[in-house]
Design a protein around this nucleic acid. Structure first.
Length: 151
DNA sequence: GCCAACGTTGGC
DNA sequence: GCCAACGTTGGC
């Protein structure tokens, strides 16, 4: 089993939205490196930290679980969708999604400042300067540590 | 294949 | 709103 950190802007889709929906399609990823993680490295049952980016403060806010195989991201073919990709063809879809299901919302959100202050989390990609990947692998130790901080 | 220009991300 | 960092695009 692997562990992940997945970023979402809360005014687009928040942990409360996932708590309400219980399951959602994690689509709209338009970066090849992140796409490859989703397509090739994720497995059903993997756990992920749900992180709010572009929020005040940016913070880890909960946990979700990868709950489907790699599926086609239908938004790439939807002309009205902001993630429409005119270069992607249905016979060879460029973009992939996964269903993720709600596990828990943290009692206390874990801000980026708190994560930076924790030496055990210093290797996380999300904290590296210039990192912009919306999906990044983390270790079990990092996952457990964030979980502990959010309790 | 190089690389300048451009667009996007996301913390601040 | 700014801008550093970085990915993508496209002319050559």
């Amino acid at each position: 089993m692997k562990y992940w950190l997945m970023k979402s802007e809360p005014f687009v889709y928040s942990i409360d939205d996932l708590a309400r929906d219980r399951i959602t399609s994690w689509d709209g990823v338009r970066n090849y490196q992140a796409r490859n993680f989703i397509r090739d490295d994720m497995q059903i049952g993997d756990m992920a930290i749900f992180y709010h980016s572009n929020s005040e403060p940016p913070a880890a806010v909960g946990v979700c679980r990868i709950s489907s195989e790699a599926i086609i991201d239908e938004t790439q073919f939807d002309h009205g969708n902001e993630n429409f990709d005119p270069r992607s063809k249905p016979e060879n879809p460029a973009w992939i999604a996964r269903e993720v299901s709600f596990v828990k919302k943290f009692r206390k959100q874990v801000s980026i400042d708190e994560m930076r202050a924790n030496k055990k989390l210093s290797e996380m990609l999300i904290l590296r300067k210039g990192n912009r990947l919306s999906v990044t692998p983390i270790t079990k130790q990092e996952f457990d540590e964030i979980l502990k901080m959010g309790e």
